[in-house]
């Protein structure tokens, strides 16, 4: 009797399993679940000058080498500089980012002994020069859009090395690669193809509310720029990615995706893994808002 019962249960479970798989497929095709959207969405421009229609602080931080010292020294006013007073060349101090850069150089040279690593990254005849300004990009080998750190992880793995996305060593190599684009403007084309699709998804995600407190990125960084949150002034999303990976004086080295995890944790949203599609879409959106703004590393942030 018990055996029959067990077999019946097993049979039912098999059917249940099929049903679950079926539901899984249905789920994948079901319309997106309900989300609150932070609306209206402003008319974002995939170029740093678009800030002139959002926070209008761009003239204050357009040229990092010529920031207004008086604004930088005033805690009530320094948000208008979009924290660029912690970027080189305005900030010439030596900090943990410089040690990371040295580590990144050593790792890169070991990885690239035979030139295969650079080739995998997509470095052409110009070598590493300008490479950082073309990420995120669509990768044939991955079949998707990927940021520089995801590609570093992928290309290191091809040589049997573990450089996990978000790890110190991965970010150090990213920093070293970025240093070869020092002063060169970000240049990604989001007007067509997979990058356009990622940009559009990122733009939507930026305005999608989530988590315990139902906040979107834009709830603060579009809707309330210049306002105070627990004593801190909120800054613009324009021109914000060109100093990553960044040395955090409280946190060592931080890639952009780890920064997004921190943003999520701070606002009560369950974070995603570095390299996840949602973070990559947000990276494409934010990087497009830095188009035309020069890379500057190693930078510091509090």
């Amino acid at each position: 009797m018990c055996k029959v019962w067990n077999e019946t249960v097993l049979a039912l479970l098999r059917v249940g399993g099929l049903l679950a798989a079926f539901i899984g497929v249905a789920w994948a095709q079901a319309p997106a679940p309900y989300r609150d959207m932070d609306l209206p969405m402003p008319d974002y421009e995939p170029h740093v000058r678009g800030d002139m229609r959002l926070s209008k602080t761009y003239p204050y931080w357009r040229d990092r080498s010529r920031l207004d010292w008086r604004l930088a020294g005033d805690p009530e006013e320094n948000w208008k500089l979009n924290w660029k007073f912690m970027d080189p060349p305005f900030n010439q101090s030596v900090h943990g980012g410089h040690f990371a850069l040295e580590r990144g150089e050593a790792l890169y040279k070991t990885l690239n002994r035979d030139g295969r690593f650079a080739a995998c990254l997509g470095a052409g005849r110009a070598g590493l020069k300008g490479l950082r300004t073309r990420f995120p990009q669509y990768r044939q080998d991955l079949g998707r859009v990927a940021g520089l750190e995801a590609v570093i992880e992928h290309c290191a793995a091809a040589q049997g090395e573990v450089l996990q996305n978000g790890s110190y060593d991965n970010s150090a190599v990213s920093l070293y690669i970025a240093s070869h684009s020092q002063g060169m403007p970000i240049r990604i084309d989001v007007s067509r193809g997979p990058l356009k699709e990622a940009y559009e998804r990122g733009r939507q995600l930026y305005h999608t509310k989530a988590g315990r407190l139902n906040f979107a990125c834009s709830s603060c960084h579009t809707r309330n720029i210049g306002q105070l949150v627990r004593g801190s002034r909120i800054t613009t999303p324009y021109g914000d990615v060109t100093h990553y990976p960044v040395y955090r004086t409280q946190y060592f080295l931080q890639s952009l995706h780890l920064r997004m995890m921190e943003c999520n944790l701070d606002t009560g949203v369950q974070p995603l893994l570095p390299g996840s599609q949602a973070y990559t879409d947000l990276e494409v959106f934010l990087t497009a808002l830095s188009n035309g703004y020069p890379v500057s590393v190693p930078a510091e942030r509090n």
């Binding site: 309900y34 609150d36 989530a210 995603l272 599609q277 949602a278």
Partner: peptide, 12 residues
């Protein structure tokens, strides 16, 4: 609570 993941099927 819902996340930003494209794979998250839970409604707000």
């Amino acid at each position: 609570w819902p996340t930003l993941s494209h794979l998250d099927r839970r409604a707000t």
